[in-house]
Each structure stands twice: as structure tokens, then as C-alpha cells.
Design a protein around this nucleic acid. Sequence first.
DNA 1: CTGAAAGCGCTTACAG
DNA 2: CTGAAAGCGCTTACAG
Lengths: 339, 339
Amino acid sequence: MATLKDVAERAEVSVSTVSRVINKEPLVKPGTREKVEAAIEELGYLPNRVAQRLRSINYRKKLIGLVLPDIQNPFYVDVVRGVEEAAYRQNFSVMIGNFDQTEEKEKIFLEILQSESIDGLIVAPARGRDENIRKVIENGYPVVCIDRGLVDLDVDVVKVNNEEGARNAIEFLIGLGHRRIAHITGHPSIATTRERVAGYDMAMRAHGLDIDPELVRNSDSSYQSGAELMQELIDLDEPPTAVFTANNLLTLGALKTIHENELHIPEDISIVGFDDMYWSSSLNPPLTAVRQSGYDIGGLATELLVKKIAHPEASTSSVVLDTELIVRHSCKPPRGSVA
Amino acid sequence: MATLKDVAERAEVSVSTVSRVINKEPLVKPGTREKVEAAIEELGYLPNRVAQRLRSINYRKKLIGLVLPDIQNPFYVDVVRGVEEAAYRQNFSVMIGNFDQTEEKEKIFLEILQSESIDGLIVAPARGRDENIRKVIENGYPVVCIDRGLVDLDVDVVKVNNEEGARNAIEFLIGLGHRRIAHITGHPSIATTRERVAGYDMAMRAHGLDIDPELVRNSDSSYQSGAELMQELIDLDEPPTAVFTANNLLTLGALKTIHENELHIPEDISIVGFDDMYWSSSLNPPLTAVRQSGYDIGGLATELLVKKIAHPEASTSSVVLDTELIVRHSCKPPRGSVA
DNA sequence: CTGAAAGCGCTTACAG
DNA sequence: CTGAAAGCGCTTACAG
């Protein structure tokens, strides 16, 4: 591939000059600029970003890292799209690591990304207290967290109002007449889990409903555990009339179990899931869900990060977006209710 | 962050020696190696991959590019996982580009990846005749295609036997007694589309069934068109009793329309989709599907690419994997049939 | 407005 | 077995 030097020779100028036109610096005589641009065109020259990155000072490496817990979760796919879009718009490349919920893989990715000399990092921390990420921050990299923050560290974070989202879902169910409302939640060490549980508690208490600990079940946030916990709920002496699932994967897992048990939604049981999917209407019946836009979260996180890269001294800021309850057809009043 | 030089000073050796231990070259005295390793440990040194990449000869840059048409399609998510897994196992980083089915974005990504000086590229071409990819190959980059090849170029490809997969699906439906079987296909310029249509044709003819052109409908492979084409099919004077959808997104779109029309699966209409999903059992009823493993395809493609990077002169090879028909509950004999 | 020179953090012959 | 030196393709002061 053609190099800077090739272009310089062709245009009969120095490499410094070529570098200047590539970087759109103003102090180049128009005629010179044209000669150089012609040479670039003729040679099909593409700047070597690796060399640029090596030579550049910190905030111009034009590479950000994105580290995600689970790329199989459609929510994070939306995040990827949002980040990519925003990053490429500002001429940043993005390197993605998916760590399948294991801290070991998270650590490896974080090291690789630092080795790749990123300008900064967008990450959804595995746990609220995340040593791996703390180390990255100590190494001086700008970091913005998405979806959830870090308990003991002051970082930028872009997230959604989980408590309110959960509360709205539960109040919707209560409004329909449900009293025995179950909640299948994620891993308790994840901040979003605790916030969603808090929203559940708050709505229940606000309506004078007791919280039956049997109805609130933990898991590791996976499809598999959504399926298992739903079965436990169904097997209860007094099963719930409605269930609120704390994420995409849990929802899908619960749905599988409900169908296997030949229970009908919403007649036998109502369900509302946290996280909407573009194909929620393809489920039968169409799913009522709490929508958070992964695309927007990813986009905002990227913009925040890019700003932070340019001004590392700026104080941390956090963005909290609202959720939206999308009512479709997976809920109705419980049997025998007069609502 | 600590550099090679820092480590060298600390260990009181030259940078050459440190470089040798990092690269696991054999000719280092054990004692020296230990001193260096201790220094690396103490400083928390991580090699700068950008510098390594810049300095390295071609096949040691340790970076591959992955360019995908649509990361919202769960099949490609599986591909990503397969590629990542295999790549990191061999100490390669991977940079991902998602081009949302547009040739313009594909071109941009391809340029970025070349600028990042990748060792090679894994790509699912947008179209059978893809000028963007041809250019990359001409620039001398090893390329392996997944899912579909290039019509006029001899490239390595890892794919699935689409014709057979489609044929199996249709024969299953015919075996159930269906005669009016519709096929919602992807964009005709994509090779997989044509192969799947060929499988459909073959099965129909083999059983002496006429192919009603009204029942075979094209689209751009998206969720939206799956939904629209399904509606057209339903609105036919003599609607099909079964439908075969050519990919994930098309299946989900068709499902949405079927539910909106309050048609029951499988009583009113049977459906089998190309592409299985880990949550196919969460659909109601659980979906019968032709399974192809994106994970395996991604993994194999990566191994092939890594080999090709090491031996660019090797002749092209292609791997064709088998599909598997996963029978669940979305199909049954048509009404009034005696099967 | 333009060029010569240094240097980013490494690897790779070349000597010894 | 180890070190000094060149160089990957750029950017960035420094002169002019």
C-alpha cells in the first residue's frame, strides 16, 4: 500500500506537507494542497492508522474500546450499534470485547484494549465492585460506564432510571388487579438488579401489598435461569398471577417455561419484561415491556467519552434516561378479578 | 504505562533481550529470562500492540477484521462469538464493522480496517458481486468469506449447505401433507437466497408439485419485509397452508403478521424458518427451524484465515457445513388432510 | 507556507 | 546468548 512518502514523492513536496493536508491543517498553500490531493487520489493512499496512533499524543489515537458482558443479549447489540454509529461519525474506530459474564475474560479484554492503546473505554461492568476496571482507570484511561455504574468509584455513567421503569411495570400490573406478582431478577451483585428490585418493592408497598420473598427470585441473569426460576414459581402452592422479568434473557427463558407448562398468556399468567426488542410483537402474544434504548445509551456514552478524551480534567457527569412502558398483549386482569 | 525500555532498565538488559522474552524466543539464558520476567511483573508491563503491529512484517500484526451485514441478526451475533473465541485463543485482536446492509458503509469499514493494518479479513459480502471486497483482495489482504461467497472470485469460504437445508425443510412440510407451500426469501442478489430458493424448487419438483410463482416472494431480507410479504401471502385468494422463511429476521417478521391476523400456528398455517435461535422455544408455539451454527462458521473461518495469513500462497479452500432440521411445534398437517 | 529531523515503542537483522 | 542500530509510517516542534 502507498505510504506518506510515496505521496510526497509523487506530489514533489515533503512528508510534512502531506501530513498537513491529511490532517486538514490550514497552513498549506491551496495550490500545494491540490497537488497533494491529486497524488493521494492517484495512489489510492489511505493513512496508516497504526502509525498515526503510535505517534499521536493521547487524545488523538482515534480508537475506543467497548467491553460488554453479553453480546447475545439484544440490548447490548443495540448498544453496539449506537456506539459504532457515533464513533465512526467522529472518525474513531471501535474495538469490541464480549466477556460472556466472566471476570477472567473481562480482564483479558481490558488488557488487550490497553495494549491497543485506546483513547478511552466504554464498559458495562461485570460487578458493582470491579477491580479490573478500577485498574484501567488508575492507568489513566477515560472510562464511561453504561447500564450500571461502579459502587465505590466516581465514574461517568449513562444509564436508565431502572427503579422507575420497574415501578411503572409493577403499578401497571397492580392496576390490572394483580396481587401476587413475582419478580425474576438478575444477579444481586449487579446494580441494575438492585435498582429494579427496589422499584418492585416500592410499587408493592405504595399499594399496601406485602412482599412475599418466595416470589422474588435471583439468578445469574441468563436465559437458562429465567427458565428455571419460572418453573419454581409455577410449582409454588400458590403461584403468582403475574411475573415481572428483569431483563431480555430472563424474559425469554420464562416464556419458554410458561409455554412448556401449557399455560396461556395472559389468561393464566401475565408477564412484563424489562427490555423491549424490535421483534417483541413476534412473540405470541406480543410482549408488554419496559423499553430502554440501547442505541441511545451507546450513542450518548460515546459522545461523553469523546468529550472526556479531549478534556480529561472535566468533572464526571452522569446521564439517566427514562424508560417507556410499551403495553402490548401479555397482561390482563387475573382470573376472577373484577377490574 | 511502562515501555520496553523501562523494563530493560529495570532488568539491566537491552531492549532486544526484553523483546526476545516477550516473544518467547528460545535463545535467552534462563537467568536472564527470569530477571526480565520479574521486571515485567513489577512494572505491570503490557506490550504496546500498536508499536508491535507497526514494526511487524505482514503476518504478525495480530489483528483481523470482521465485516458483517447486520449485527441485529442473531445469526451474525453467533458468528461474532465464534470469531472472537477463536481469534483471542490465537492472540489475535478483532475489529468489527457492521454495515447495516449498505454498500456505502461496507466500503467505509473496509477502508478503516485496511488503515488499521489488519492481517486479514472475514466478511459476509453484501452482494454476490462485491467491488469493495474485490479491491481489498487486490490490495493483497487474505480474505475468507462466510455465509456466502463471491460469484466471480475464487475466495475461501465457510458456509452451510443452503440448498440441502431448504430442501429438507420443504420435504418435511410435504411429508406433512402440505401442497401450497410459500417461500419468503431474501434479496435475490445474495447467493444464499438463490441457493435456498433452489432447494425449495428441487423439493417441490421432486414431489411433482407445481411451483406457483405467487407463493415465492422476494424482499430485502429484513424484519419489515418479512412482515409485509407475509401479509401479501395471507391476502391471496388461495393462501398457503405453510410458509418457509429464508432467515431469522424474515421469520420473526412473518410471525408478527401471522399473530396480527389472529391466525393460529400450526392449525391455520405451518411455518419453518431458516436459522435457529437459542430462544426458538420461547416462541409460541416453539419454532421448527433449519439450524446452522454461526458459532462454528465463525470459528472455522477464523482458523482458515489464520492459516491463510501464515501461508498466503496456499490454494483456496471452502468448507461447507451441514444444517440440521430442528422439529418443534410450528408445523402440522394442513386442515382437511388425511396425513 | 514548507522542509529536515527527532521520536512514538517496538522488532529484526547484524555483530560479537 | 546479548546488545547497538536501523527502521516501521507517521506527527510534531523547530527552523527558515
